[in-house]
């Protein structure tokens, strides 16, 4: 479904991605794991059209994504929830969700999708009139993910959804991601919380200093002592 080949991305002299190749199949949930500054967000940002790579290719359902401006990606079924959420903090929850349904592909069936989002995050239904910027971090993340789901995506890109959330809130969030995942949506996720992410994902790529240093089934990576040492803080504690 998504095919990334030899992607190289630079910010000035700094090379953020160095010949990265990765794939995401239809219905898969693929995690990108790595330390801070490994290039995870750059990779997701390149797929989401936020940053332009120096070389390489990104193909999505036979479409060259690098040929499209950022705002057209969502019409092709790609929804990005960036780091920092990218919501409209001065607007209400309701307006944020309506904005999610703005793309042409999302206009039909928007009401049903809104009900699904409210089913997934009941808090948003209660707070639909609240200004999004006045909500807690976890609630804002719900708005961001709900907004992305409103655009009827085929591929959901999540950048550090649990960043800055209290552990219990992060747990709730991963539970919701599990339900979204169960709905069959294809997901590419970047996360620092490797344990919780590997519990949900099918496969993962390990990124270090802009290069892929390993890949495999999530199950196998969870039980790999080397991975545990590097990415899971020594040991898995569930």
């Amino acid at each position: 479904m998504l095919e990334i080949k030899d992607l190289t991305l630079r910010y000035g002299k700094h090379t953020a991605l160095d010949g990265v190749s990765a794939e995401v199949g239809k219905g898969e949930m693929v995690a990108i794991l790595g330390a801070n500054g490994a290039g995870k967000s750059s990779l997701l940002g390149a797929v989401g059209g936020r940053v332009r790579p120096a070389s390489g290719s990104i193909r999505y359902q036979d479409q060259d994504l690098l040929a499209l401006p950022q705002h057209l990606l969502v019409e092709h079924g790609i929804a990005l929830v960036p780091e920092g959420r990218g919501i409209f903090p001065a607007m209400t929850v309701e307006d944020n969700l309506s904005l999610g349904a703005l793309p042409r592909r999302a206009q039909a069936g928007a009401a049903a999708r809104r009900d699904e989002v409210f089913g997934l995050f009941p808090k948003l239904a209660q707070r639909r009139g609240q200004i999004a910027g006045t909500m807690s971090g976890g609630e804002q993340q719900m708005v961001a993910i709900g907004r992305a789901l409103m655009s009827a995506p085929d591929l959901l890109l999540l950048d550090e959804p649990s960043l800055g959330l209290a552990p219990i809130v992060a747990q709730e969030l991963f539970a919701a991601l599990g339900r979204i995942r169960a709905g069959g949506l294809t997901i590419m996720i970047v996360e620092q919380n490797a344990a919780a992410t590997l519990a949900l994902a099918d496969r993962a790529y390990l990124l270090e200093a802009g290069r892929i240093i390993g890949a495999g089934a999530a199950e196998a990576l969870r039980n790999d002592p080397a991975v545990a040492a590097a990415f899971l803080g020594g040991a898995l504690t569930d």
């Binding site: 705002h71 969502v74 904005l99 703005l102 907004r147």
Partner: peptide, 17 residues
Amino acid sequence: LTLRAVALSPVSAPLVG
């Protein structure tokens, strides 16, 4: 809604197309 979105958060606006 589109005009308001660009006025309030031009960086986020492309995310919703």
